[in-house]
Design a protein around this nucleic acid. Structure first.
Length: 555
RNA sequence: GCGCCCGUAGCUCAGCUGGAUAGAGCAGCGGACUUCUAAUCCGCGGGUCGGCGGUUCGACUCCGCCCGGGCGCUCCA
């Protein structure tokens, strides 16, 4: 139900208490517990219920059921909102709303359109979400794809919830993994030239490295000469450029666009400045020839090295600098999305953000768990070392962008995700994505058929009173929970509720569709049902937009 | 050894800051197309919520201890 209706009910309940107190039916106390109206799980308990009487039992010194009965009896009339109240169980007050309460929802959706469900939760605060940020040493894989989906969907949800959102990708284009990449390409190049060379354990074994070597050679024939430092540098830069370009392209085809691609290399001397800044604040010290950050002061279980004995800054030092850079850009909140292998890293980075002078909670790190691919009832074996990973590109080609995104958004981000490739490929009812999309297409079809017959959505006031059957009201009730749902997703930073709701809404509509006709009824009935169908269409389309999948008009 | 995540129906998973008889999808079985798309709908079965204690009117949910699975505990990134 809508927030307005909830607030109205809570207000009436409090009035009821004061009325009862005036009549001497209940003792008067000054401190009242907060009224919480919760959705009921079962219809027989009404549309919503409150445990307020149970909370009042102690302060009033009366049995909760008696309080509940008194409150229910004294409920003032709430112009057309409430049908009746009941007292049940240990002292719940159950509210049964009148149809008019649900018709309000429809009016709202008609007025607000795709803005239905928008909120001011974020108060215009600037939020940056950094995600994927994979090493630029190979194509993006399925775990990156999951992170990409979660990050992108969360960004859309946050935007709808009143945040100003920027999406950013951090390119780790510096460090030993880049050296390894350059060497790996060089080995493959030497192989192409028929010379002796072998990959080391830390090198990249994937097929794409051979491709890179081939492309580099055709681009720069001088590479066929004796190996040189210059040639080596060319190879590393060439590979890096190609890989990053490939990642950008894959993500774009996956529907994920970043506002900023931030190069680690570009931090340059900011790293030293950041270390100096921390030193000046007294958060660093020297030990064993290294410079340490006193992260234990901020709850870390050990201090961390910023500058190695040999004078090179650690990756951590660069990361602290990067986060200082982000904060200097004026963001109010930072969200990082990482894989589970980085979780030991969270405390020290949060410590750094606090050391830089920002309150706890400025940085939140979300971990997205691993993905298992299943095909033909069997797990698809993947090995990073051997370079046998299913890439994001493969996934897009295999199951399509929409199915991949929907499936990645479907599970709680903290749970391992089993991705059934066969199911994702299916274009039948078993596939939840098609189930949802079909509901949308069906409604579009009704609207088209209506338009052909000269029946259009009325722009003015609609008489909703024909919408009174149980299934119809159920559909309306579900629609009215959408704003709460979006807020829940935003607050908990959990996108998966969205897919579940989409399935529920599609299911409710399919049921409605089977039971009732929209077109061909008496004009008032047809008009009212057309409004309802269109409202469902709008909400489904909005969910698809948030998920980044297509809401098809035909199927 | 320490820390984090997970353990719910045959399978994959929900379960909203503690609420009433724990839900959905898939798989299984049985029905429904002369009507706006049957890519759909309706019905049926299925559970010691990993285990044991604790907190309270009430626990899948909170706390403690175990069991099982995953991951992390570098002057690597």
């Amino acid at each position: 139900m809508l927030k307005e209706a909830r607030e109205a009910l809570a207000g009436s309940l409090e009035k009821s208490y004061h009325l009862a107190a005036e009549l001497g039916e209940l003792p008067l106390v000054s401190q009242l517990p907060e009224i919480v109206l919760e959705r009921t799980r079962e219809k027989k308990y009404g549309d919503c219920a409150t445990n307020w009487a149970m909370l009042l039992a102690r302060p009033l010194g009366l049995p909760p059921r008696r309080i509940a009965e008194t409150l229910a009896r004294n409920m003032p009339h709430t112009d057309g909102l409430l049908e009746r109240t009941e007292v049940a169980g240990p002292g719940f007050v159950n509210f049964f709303l009148a149809p008019g309460a649900w018709w309000q929802t429809l009016r709202r959706i008609q007025n607000e359109g795709s803005h239905f469900g928008d909120s001011a939760l974020g108060q215009g605060k600037r939020l940056q979400i950094e995600f994927v940020s994979a090493n630029p040493t190979g194509p993006l894989n399925v775990v990156n794809a999951r992170a990409a989906t979660v990050g992108d969907v969360l960004a859309r949800i946050a935007e709808k919830s009143g945040y100003k959102v920027e999406k950013e990708y951090y390119i780790n284009d510096e460090g030993s993994q880049i050296e390894n990449l350059g060497r790996s390409v060089e080995v493959r190049l030497l192989e192409l030239l028929g010379r002796d060379a072998a990959l080391g354990e830390d090198d990249y074994h994937g097929e794409y490295v051979k491709d890179l070597a081939r492309q580099a050679l055709s681009e720069n024939q001088q590479l066929a000469e004796e190996p040189s430092e210059k040639g080596r540098r060319f190879l590393a830069d060439f590979a890096l450029g190609r890989i990053i370009a490939g990642q950008k392209l894959d993500l774009a085809d996956f529907g994920v666009e970043f506002h900023v691609w931030f190069s680690q290399k570009s931090l340059g001397d900011e790293i030293q400045k950041t270390i100096d800044y921390l030193a000046q604040k007294g958060y660093t010290y020297e030990k064993d020839g290294a410079v340490w950050f006193a992260s234990q002061r901020f709850g870390d279980d050990q201090d961390r090295v910023l500058v190695r004995e040999d004078g090179r800054p650690t990756y951590f030092a660069a990361d602290v600098t990067y986060h200082k850079n982000k904060l200097d850009r004026g963001f109010d909140f930072l969200i990082n999305i990482w894989g589970p292998d980085h979780h030991g890293y969270i405390t020290r980075l949060k410590a750094a953000v606090q050391a830089l002078g920002y309150p706890e909670g400025t940085l939140e790190v979300i971990l997205v768990q691993l993905v298992t691919l299943v095909e033909g009832g069997r797990q698809v074996r993947m090995s990073k070392r051997a370079g046998k990973l299913v890439s994001l590109r493969d996934l897009i080609e295999e199951v399509g962008r929409d199915a991949a995104r929907f499936f990645f958004a479907m599970r709680h981000r903290d749970s391992h995700l089993e991705f059934d490739l066969d199911l994702a490929r299916m274009q039948t009812e078993e596939n939840p994505l098609y189930y949802v999309q079909y509901a949308h297409a069906r409604i579009c079809s009704i609207l088209r058929k209506g338009a052909e017959a000269g029946i259009f959505l009325s722009s003015g006031e609609t008489d909703y009173s024909p919408l009174c059957e149980e299934e119809t009201l159920d559909l309306l009730k579900l629609l009215s929970t959408f704003p709460d749902l979006v807020q829940e997703c935003a607050q908990k930073m959990e996108p998966h509720h969205l897919t579940r709701y989409a399935q529920d809404l599609a299911s409710a509509f399919h049921g409605f569709y089977t039971r009732f006709r929209v077109l061909g009824e008496e004009p008032p009935v047809t008009h009212a049902r057309l409004c309802l169908a269109d409202a469902v269409r709008l909400v489904l389309a909005e969910i698809c937009r948030l998920l980044g999948v297509i809401a098809p008009e035909h199927m």
